[in-house]
Every structure is written in C-alpha cells, then in structure tokens.
Design a protein around this nucleic acid. Sequence first.
DNA 1: TAATCATATCATTACTTAATGATATGAAAA
DNA 2: TTTTCATATCATTAAGTAATGATATGATTA
Lengths: 119, 119
Amino acid sequence: MSQTYRQQALSIKARLFRGFADPSRLAVLEALRNGPRSVGEIVEATGLSQSNTSNHLSCLHDCGLVSRMQQGRYVYYTLADARVAELLSIADTLLADVARGVYECTRYMLPQEGHDAHD
Amino acid sequence: MSQTYRQQALSIKARLFRGFADPSRLAVLEALRNGPRSVGEIVEATGLSQSNTSNHLSCLHDCGLVSRMQQGRYVYYTLADARVAELLSIADTLLADVARGVYECTRYMLPQEGHDAHD
DNA sequence: TAATCATATCATTACTTAATGATATGAAAA
DNA sequence: TTTTCATATCATTAAGTAATGATATGATTA
C-alpha cells in the first residue's frame, strides 16, 4: 500500500516531465524563455493553431510550469519558475552529448520517418 | 527551411524528456539512482514485467540516458550521465512546489481516474 | 551438447494524447 | 449595445505509445 504512494509519486513526476515531452509544448516553453508573451505572440512564434496553443497552455498552466496574467483582452504567460528554464538548459547541455542517440531512439517511431542512416 | 531544423531540434529535445515522461521508465531510472543494476534487479525493484522492463531499457539506452555493460549472462545498466540524475533532482525540487498543480493537470485524463477532490 | 537461465525482440492489443474545426466566452472598441 | 477581437472550451479524429504474451538469442552450467 506504500507501493501505491510510490506509484502515485512516479505518476506525478512523469506528468511533470510530460509537460516538456512534446515538441509543441516545448516550442511554447521556448517562446517564453525570453519573458512574458501573449497567446497571440506564442501562436505566431510557434506556428501552432490558436486552439492547439491554448490547449497546451492550459495544460502547462495546470501543471504549474507557466503562469498566467490577464491584461485587457490579452493573456500573458510566463515560465512559472526558474527551475523550468533550468531544466530546459540542462536538457540542452545533455543533448549536445547524446543528441545522436536520441535521434536514433526510434523504437516507438513509425518506419516511414526513415531513420536508416547510421553514419 | 531553418524552421525545419528548429522543429527537428524540438522533436529531439521532446524525445529526451519523453524518456522521463512515463511512470515505468521513471521507476527504472530511480532504480538506477544508487548505482548499476541488472535487468533482473530492475524488474524486481520496479515490479514491471521482464519484457516491459527490457523494452523501456532499450529505449532509455538508445536515448543515451542509461548505459549498458554485460557481465556473463547478466546485463547491468547505469545512468549514463550525472545530468540525468540532476534532471531527476531538479524535478523533485520543482515538484515539491507544484505537485498539486501537476496532480490536477487532468486535461487529458480519463474521467474514471476521479480527480474531483480539489483539496 | 543439452538444458537452463538472463535478457531481448516481436506482433498484437489497448490506451493515451495531440490536432482539428467549430463554437463559446468575455473584454474592448465602434 | 452591437461588433470585433483575443482567448478558451469541446467533441471528434487521428496518431502515438505502453503493456502483454509468445518466442528468440546468447551465455553458462550440467
């Protein structure tokens, strides 16, 4: 039964990481790296649809990764915590070393994406 | 077209985080936090099936998050880089503050999981 | 070399989640 | 107070991904 708590903790932690684990959400977070942006600005910066952007923002907000602040009819979002940016930075550093490995992590990818070049 | 490179970079980065974004893989990574473990030990520590564990380990290995070392008929895995542990630690810290938010990030969850309590 | 043990692979199934299009809300401007 | 603009919500669809059970590989022991 303490096992259940452990599993719940893992689920919560996994969900935190899942905030970072999608290219679109990552694009949103990157767009916020230089300060607050309105939804419209994020839409433009990321090229995502308005609806999709808003959905991801809601999720990121519920997860506590971004914070919201309304100004007139605009809504501005920001990274909620310095550690969010820190996680992004460490990932960048780590990626510099393991990018090739990640690129080849095709276990769950469809064949049509075509990762056949091995160097 | 530089957009394409940007998108590819985002995909790779997202895939890195996806390594952390599943409770089972997180359990595997946690099991490795105190040093090398054989697959069997990981199976026991996590309670996952042998096949499932092996699949996740393959993915984590391809992604460069863990490294493998064979010894006789046992295969030992370790965290591949200190930054993997670092990411886990920062996540722990961050979670201490936002856990509630993450817990309530039920946007994409099924209703039957029952997150109706708000306190 | 036959049997056993540890790990890996594979195909299938079930589930989760991202994207889309349409619509709703709510604030400012006309 | 109607229209316009910015954002949010919702139902649906499409896609991605985790788990399972069965089987394969490859190394040790008998």
